[in-house]
Design a protein around this nucleic acid. Structure first.
Lengths: 240, 240
DNA sequence: CGCTGGATTGAGTCCGGTCAAGCCTTGTGG
DNA sequence: CCACAAGGCTTGACCGGACTCAATCCAGCG
């Protein structure tokens, strides 16, 4: 299978000229809504640069390629009618995103910070076209996505403290950092991911800091002081 | 690929002798915890009968077969350490369950009401063993599961009213019933599925009835009076 | 040094959870 | 066939955690 260069998938490399919206204003997905040009430069092997908050693809676009984060971070999200935003997932360097279960993207993908993204391969919705290698990889990817989504369902049943603890541990694990976690995303991103309000997310973090479970040297830098305590908090887990 | 009859998967056909627990007592997954005998009768083609609340497989069991609901209804669920229960999904006649992404079941499966279940096929975790037909079907199945789980994440970001409206519409759609929905599951099941308390689930239904959006001729029978209103409620949905 | 956007903090409100009481349905046994 | 008991459902009162509104605070940058 080869990459379909005639694919209708397109994006705009929104360089600089940040939309500069306030914290409470419209979110990127809405603000940049229709404006996407046709700068398709998806040659395999050449990472593409996206500046902070730039869209990579948009919900409703036909599903095209799979992407790998080289540097930075990517979020997938969906704008809701009432102005709120739901974040599907964060993707860190080395992780692959863009896999979906139907013809059109259900979620948009946006750069959380300035990021480099690589087009990995195109995805065909038709199974018969796959070779074993490809199928196996895609299957693995699907499993991982499914797993994470399932965990998320559990997470959303918990309290704010538990969600935040969970989030911190997950990020720590995924970045491989033993002690200190570097969070690329804003409080609002975190809140939308965890299904909390911005204020609650922030409050909860400071609360955890007061309890000495974590330290916050800089607003995007978290030190996990009492990993065990956090883990206990996070794991409302299974009975036995 | 053939069915592995030596598989360690087992279940108990809990006929009659209902555990009869009160609404607030322990839930089946916990109550019937360890007691599962080895009555493996998984001959393909012969539906197996499970009485209300009987377990079909248990979380922690090695993943074995895929099952198809012939009659009745099945729920997958997970007991949490704090005594609460998380319901993963409901499966109605014609639907297939049992697919998971790892070696051991993350969720238990239980009959919601007296049900007939058919063993469809065994699942191998190793991709290479699949033939095209099998792979294609399993892929479709996985897509569907993933899709539903994703929708669920969205749902859990909404209010009680929205969740309930969503649930009713989903059930109506899945049963194909145009007007009247027959809900096989109890209020507690619904509540655990939607991440609400039993009381809130019940209250919300009566509230919707007062507003004439639905009617409740019997506690398990719901008539959708104002589908459009429900849909508007449910679909906090995407912007545009 | 002031500006801007993000983060924190506070006060007040409300939705949904908890506790508790009663109702209704179902099934069982006299 | 009726009476009673048990479980499930509904409803009420109250409470608390999370949301909202709003005022600072802080860091980065021109």
């Amino acid at each position: 299978m080869q990459i379909d260069l005639a694919s209708p998938l397109a994006w705009e490399v929104t360089r600089s000229s940040k939309p500069r919206q306030s914290q409470t204003e419209l979110i990127p997905s809405i603000a940049q809504g229709g404006k996407r040009a046709l700068h398709v430069v998806s040659r395999k092997g050449a990472p593409i640069e996206f500046s902070r908050n730039a869209g990579i693809y948009w919900e409703g676009d036909p599903v095209g390629q799979l992407y790998k984060v080289i540097s930075g971070a990517v979020r997938t999200c969906k704008a809701l009618a009432d102005g709120r935003r739901q974040i599907g997932a964060f993707y860190l360097p080395g992780e692959i995103f863009g896999l979906e279960t139907q013809a059109d993207h259900l979620l948009s993908a946006e750069a959380v910070v300035d990021s480099q993204v690589l087009v990995v391969k195109s995805q065909s919705s038709h199974f018969e076209h796959w070779d074993l290698q490809e199928a196996s990889e895609t299957w693995e990817l699907m499993r991982r996505e499914f797993r994470r989504t399932s965990d998320r369902v559990l997470l959303l049943g918990k309290t704010a403290r538990e969600r935040v603890a969970n989030f911190l541990l997950e990020m720590a694990e995924r970045t491989g950092s033993s002690e200190q976690v570097e969070l690329p995303m804003s409080r609002k991103d975190i809140a939308d991911y965890l299904g909390l309000s911005l204020e609650t997310a922030s409050r909860t973090l400071t609360q955890l800091e007061r309890e000495a479970a974590i330290a916050i040297p800089g607003s995007k830098r978290i030190v996990l002081r009492k990993r065990a305590a956090l883990r206990r908090l996070a794991e409302v887990g299974p009975l036995n």
